[in-house]
Design a binder for these strands. Structure first.
Lengths: 352, 352
DNA sequence: AACGTCATTGTTAGCGTTCACAGATATGGA
DNA sequence: TCCATATCTGTGAACGCTAACAATGACGTT
């Protein structure tokens, strides 16, 4: 007796066999109970459940994954995860995945590069994800993605529609149109634009929507300024614009600055500061609108007109799209989900 | 010949045996190459690597995890992941984990409850995480955590030091002292406080630091107002404070409002708006300071004095702490890492 | 020549599950 | 009574990998 059981020591986690022995059944019956197979007698099921409870048994996910060939894990590659947008998507996405019975592992990129992207994907791949969502809205990233022939499905978020990769996106073009029309409708001669980095697909789409709206209205299209999404870059652009306002009395080529559509709320904050410092009143002298509707936007000085994107919906849609592609490998690569944004009018664009 | 090999079909991923066969070695040698075991002849290693390359072989993580009993996965439970702080931590944490060779899976809680927390932990546990980091700075959450006897190590972030769970935190108390001293040093009679929700440990520590500093300075301690971290709640508190300023001419019990320490930057934004609407100048009539140093803070109107927390460092420290506890189960439960915050002075608190 | 040592490789036995199948037992109709 | 059928349970073999050990050959030492 003393010989066979070394009794103490860091006891290993109980296995299915341990449960089976305790319940007086075979390991297979335990497995059936765990996967709620119908053909198990109620009393047997109860015995097994009790044994599981008593032993504190938890099924070993690695063994299960090995034999079923399913890790029930999805990967996410994200870019600026401290920004409100990406963070919200990550959140919505994780929640949606959990509801579908998946775990999600995220890898964040400090800055985009083809190498960083492929390393991130390798990393996820090493851990056996069944599919990945890529939230890296760089033109180059999506192109690089299209090159890679991956052994699992990939879905992009804000990845544009030019390449044969299924994806989810907010209709940035529409959002930009909404803002621009809104400003034109308020009687402005034209609308200036502070754009995001030119290699970002979202930035490009917003520029397009803005430009098209102006052209369709038959008004002059001022040269867009370019920022990098940060408040600081918005501040710089704001200083530039403020200079133009000041100089507008003199004879100039470009039209007066009376309305500005800024490509995101953070930059709009910078623009607001620059205008404030230049003594320009908003919306009195210049109307301003942003994009994203971050929680702070409503409390800016003045509260910011902006475009709300339903980030949670984007996350959910991308998971659904990904999960639907998991089993089947030969699906068409042109599936798209487009989510409509909504204009939120606040006092930065309306004379009160 | 035609009989044995059905040639086509959805070819399964190559296994170690496939690589071995192609390289003319045993699967064990392949394993040795993959785990960079020293005793492999160079030419053999080259053969194996070539075969791996040609076949596009990737080692099956589940099989590996099954036999090594290591999933190399860590779990994170986080709360308000769209806020700048939590998002930054998550980011720093993920990066640190990746550097240590771990994958991280996060579960986010929409709102704290003991049930949600234990479900989140169960979920992670089901996927075989080796340890978890809990970023749920509720008093109740940490208490609930101490109850649970989990089969893997747990590290808290901002979990307080009252319970025997190892953890990492920013010295909130010190941060609050820095701000409060700064405001007192600028000549204010006393400093008002807009606190976070009372069940948050961080909020509590900030209140303590603020109160202690006032008491040590021998000045009156005004009753703290309470918000819920959102700009809106800050706005409400700001309206309340503005009312007191307006009424301060009349005979009152509480001291004049000339300086306010707001427990986070988002609420401070709301306070700023309320003051602006009430016609109060900042810092002219009232000085304001926040906490967190979100990227927007520098561009508020006026730029906000605040306390910077190195969230990335917190993330890294928590991973290091967790990883150090992985193998060994009998370690002391009182390990703490405290990170010092830094006062960032901007014009919301300084007469220029 | 015989032996020990080291580097290199192969063989075998699990890891803890699920799957496919084979028994066993109960139910029902002829 | 007997077989067909349905329900329940057990047995053995994977899944793809690593750990432990055994085997081989090369080398230097006695």
């Amino acid at each position: 007796m003393s010989q066979t059981a070394p009794s103490t020591g860091p006891r290993r986690a109980p296995t299915m066999a341990d449960v089976a022995q305790r319940a007086g059944v075979s390991h297979q019956t335990v497995s059936r109970v765990l996967s709620s197979h119908p053909n198990v007698r109620d009393s047997t099921r109860a015995d097994v459940l009790r044994a599981i409870e008593e032993l504190g048994y938890r099924r070993n996910s690695s063994a299960r994954a090995l034999v079923t060939r399913r890790t029930l894990t999805l990967g996410v590659v994200a870019c600026n995860p401290t920004l409100f947008g990406p963070a919200s998507m990550l959140f919505g996405l994780e929640e949606a995945a959990r509801d579908e019975g998946f775990m999600v592992s995220a890898v964040t990129l400090r800055r985009y590069s083809a190498k960083a992207l492929s390393e991130a994907i390798d990393h996820l791949s090493d851990w056996g994800v069944e599919g990945i969502v890529v939230i890296v809205p760089h033109r180059a990233a999506v192109a690089a993605l299209a090159e890679l022939r991956l052994p699992f499905p990939v879905v992009t978020v804000e990845g544009g529609h030019s390449l044969p990769i299924p994806g989810v996106s907010v209709d940035q073009d529409l959002g930009a149109r909404l803002v621009t029309s809104h400003l034109l409708g308020a009687g402005h001669q034209t609308v200036w634009h502070v754009a995001g980095p030119s290699d970002w697909l979202e930035a490009e789409a917003r520029v397009r929507g803005w430009r098209d709206t102006l052209e369709e209205a038959g008004v002059e299209v001022p040269p867009p300024l370019v920022g990098d999404w940060t408040p600081l870059s918005g501040y710089r652009a704001g200083q530039e614009l403020a200079g133009r306002v000041a100089a507008s009395g003199a004879r100039r080529r470009s039209p007066d600055v009376t309305a500005v559509f800024v490509a995101n709320d953070q930059m709009a904050l910078g623009v607001l500061r620059a205008f404030r410092e230049a003594g320009l009143s908003v919306p009195g002298q210049v109307a301003i609108a942003g994009f994203d509707d971050i929680p702070e936007a409503e409390f800016f000085a003045p509260p910011l007109t902006t475009v709300r994107q339903d980030f949670a919906a984007v996350g959910q849609a991308s998971i659904r799209l990904l999960v639907s592609r998991l089993g089947s490998s030969g699906l068409p690569n042109d599936e798209r989900v487009v989510i409509e944004p909504r204009l939120i009018v606040r006092s930065s664009s309306t004379h009160s």
